[in-house]
Design a protein around this nucleic acid. Sequence first.
DNA 1: CTGAAAGCGCTTACAG
DNA 2: CTGAAAGCGCTTACAG
Lengths: 365, 365
Amino acid sequence: MPRLKSATQSANVTIHDVAAHAGVGSMTVSRVINQNVRVSDALRAKVMASIKALNYSVNMAARSTRSGMGGVRIGILYSNPSSSYLNEVMLGGLEQSSRLGCQLILEKCGGLASQKAAVKRLLAGGIDGVILPPPLCDSQATVNMLSAAGIPVVALATAKPLAEVSAVRIDDFQGALKMTRYLIGLGHTKIGFIKGDPNHTPTQLRYEGFLAGISEANLTVNPAWIKDGLFTYRSGLEAGRELLELRKRPTAIFASNDDMAAAVVAVAHGLHIRIPHDLSVCGFDDTPIASTVWPELTTIHQPIVAMGRSSVSTIFEMIKTHKSAKMSKPIHHLMKFTLIERGSTGKAPYLASQPPSTGRVMPLT
Amino acid sequence: MPRLKSATQSANVTIHDVAAHAGVGSMTVSRVINQNVRVSDALRAKVMASIKALNYSVNMAARSTRSGMGGVRIGILYSNPSSSYLNEVMLGGLEQSSRLGCQLILEKCGGLASQKAAVKRLLAGGIDGVILPPPLCDSQATVNMLSAAGIPVVALATAKPLAEVSAVRIDDFQGALKMTRYLIGLGHTKIGFIKGDPNHTPTQLRYEGFLAGISEANLTVNPAWIKDGLFTYRSGLEAGRELLELRKRPTAIFASNDDMAAAVVAVAHGLHIRIPHDLSVCGFDDTPIASTVWPELTTIHQPIVAMGRSSVSTIFEMIKTHKSAKMSKPIHHLMKFTLIERGSTGKAPYLASQPPSTGRVMPLT
DNA sequence: CTGAAAGCGCTTACAG
DNA sequence: CTGAAAGCGCTTACAG
């Protein structure tokens, strides 16, 4: 049975078809699609036209076969499958891996014992490098196991990168500082803060960023307005209640992540405190829950998709060096964060002379 | 520079290395790793031992190159990147695609106009098949465009599969029926229901499943207890408030998805209604928010990871048939759902003779 | 049941 | 700047 070749079956069009159509050698086509400079403009134009006419696209599998990077397998070792992080990490990672023609292997693990087993599975599967999203990015034990096996590692979104381990991250300190300045700029002087899980590296840096913002404005922190949290919704519920039941309560609450900030919003509902008229609330990370609750949360957006992309190219780079038996130096990428302003923050209460506009009143009051 | 071959550099071990080690031809190795039956037990054992000794693993890129299915490109056209659905779809889809040695291409689109553009991008990229997660799975326009271009399509998690389009889904009607029976089994007779977005196919079936459960128990539905929703948290906030401010309010509320159920929980907080002592709340889908809020939501779990896996194998199957120029018949997979019982539901109030135990009281009261 | 040969679509390394 | 040859790691198709 003859193979059909229509525009819709482009997957079967090869480099040789294009070469024949353009009347050149297949190497010229290869050079054009690889952006190689050493092709005359005349031939390049002809090839481009043929590629378009035949609707050609590169067969990644074949490319990576010959280029030596064939079947590069990159593991992503994650511990929390429903983390909103992972979603976007994969979005970016997949995009980059298909561009690079390499394979992404997801491996799940639970506790520390299970981490060990997961690393072994990864090793047995013949993995070439591993990406560690949070909170595993901070697991010294996992990093050590992988390093001992000679596997390159990239720590994703760790706040305190080790000098000897590659990392892709944002500056948590600066992020928290920016948010604090923003709240102060709205006229808030009584600002509460909910810390994250003490075992995760961003926790301390976000807190320090907050403190830095407070002190540069010559404000003081009321110790009663600093609460411990665990990055969970439930811990936010408790911290939020403690803060909002205070006789002298803050006019703004900066939670170390979005889950906890969403919980504070729920607590405020319960106490009939209007957001943002009576209270401003903000989070960190810009995970889906930030735009699920109402009002939506002002937060610090981490470019997770880009960070996923970057992790894959970084680990790929390291694998390449590693395979050529050279010493690979750790690579560090610092990405840019953005402050996203949404409905959960507004001017400090005593500055808002106007009665609240209907659009921003809590629907529950 | 000589290539190192240690157990940790298994990616470079080829089928020929294994063959040499085992003292057989490389075809025998190929047959063993492909589970081909026609290999003598003696040789098979030798090969297995060598594979283990050399820590060999298949180079997927090379395999797919020769097997004709090389560079099969499967598109996933999604409209909501932060949907918790997509996360798990990718988890399963990626697992399967790396097993099959094919490529997953993510393509995002927004409104209907942008759907058209996204389909064009996919076509231009030389895609071989497309998976449509919700809500795009129900977009007749998109399905038509793809079909017209001769591209196989799989609709993922649609509630009303078209006979002529392949689909992987659960039975939304049965899911809602099971949940309704569960609530009735807890003694609830006054059950409220919040519908989903009228444009999504699961909306109607979940509602019908609920009605079926009510009527088979010879109960009646108070029309005031049926509210419209849009699957969003905010719509759940409004519907929840309307239901809970009723003079005669239901003792249980079944929301058509988890976002809306989470909102009902928040409303209950605000009205000092204890969950589950005074009110049971349940959702549908088992998305991350179901286990984020407190108390966690009783819900219907869709096996999304398995559905992602299944979508990829289904579309791969169709592409294979399609490439061999045969007519491909639509394939339909019905997956099993599970009722997950968590803290948000309990016995109907008048049956709970005991005062609420501390562990289940709302932390806000 | 087993294996030597040819080929998948691309790129590397070598000649012009 | 251009192209014919050889090869990537695997499988298909062909012989034994």
